[in-house]
Nucleic acid binder design. Structure first.
Lengths: 108, 108
DNA sequence: ACAACATATGAACAATGATTCATATGTTCA
DNA sequence: TGAACATATGAATCATTGTTCATATGTTGT
């Protein structure tokens, strides 16, 4: 026997589209790296340029730049240019609430 | 020049401990796989045994079992045994709120 | 135009991770 | 105890990914 299987069809269960669940997983992958988490925390304080982010979190300029691109592609951060310098900042409030929810879960 | 670097110290920025940020990333890694996302969505409906989960999301028993272990280790799901069958269910409400936040971000 | 600086990018490498296959563990019932 | 079933697990494989190094792009001031 396989439980209730046979009676159960994916169509009977109200789930988001396959694509949506895939996109959701992709989004969480972005949060699933401690370098990117650190960057996001730094940006909670204020917008900041790449060099400063590198110094604060102790990673190379290149590594930070690569990860900023990932965050940018997921629309979690935005940026503005001021001369040679590019300032990054958080894109919206969801970042904060997602991370707060995660923290709550951890602290149990 | 390196921006404001030199003035900026990680100590001046109120960030969670290194360990906490690492754990947070580990937690989000768990959400960062579409198979696990599907499992969690299925469990939103009701507790369910491994075979049924496999059937509903269309993955092998083994693959589902492996992923359930990951979810179990992160305390996102719990389980109870009833004879041969093991029923899995969501561990707490954070799962739902984390995923809802993610969905909101995607649908923008 | 050139030098100095800030950031981005591409290739390479190492590490991590998801799935599959085979098999082990644990449970029920006859 | 043995057969059938439900789940778990270990090893192997293939794909993904984060970091590094070298270098390219883009900007400013002289």
């Amino acid at each position: 026997m396989e439980g209730e299987a046979g009676k159960i069809d994916i169509k009977d269960i109200p789930m988001p589209d396959e694509d949506v669940m895939y996109d959701l997983a992709e989004l969480y992958k972005v949060f699933g790296d401690s370098t990117r988490i650190k960057i996001l925390y730094v940006l909670f304080e204020s917008e900041m340029c790449v060099q400063d982010i590198s110094n604060v979190i102790g990673m190379t300029q290149s590594a930070v730049s690569h990860q900023l691109r990932v965050l940018k592609n997921s629309k979690l951060v935005k940026y503005r240019r001021d001369g040679k310098t590019i300032y990054y900042s958080l894109a919206d409030g969801h970042v904060r609430s997602i991370m707060d929810q995660g923290l709550e879960h951890i602290e149990e």
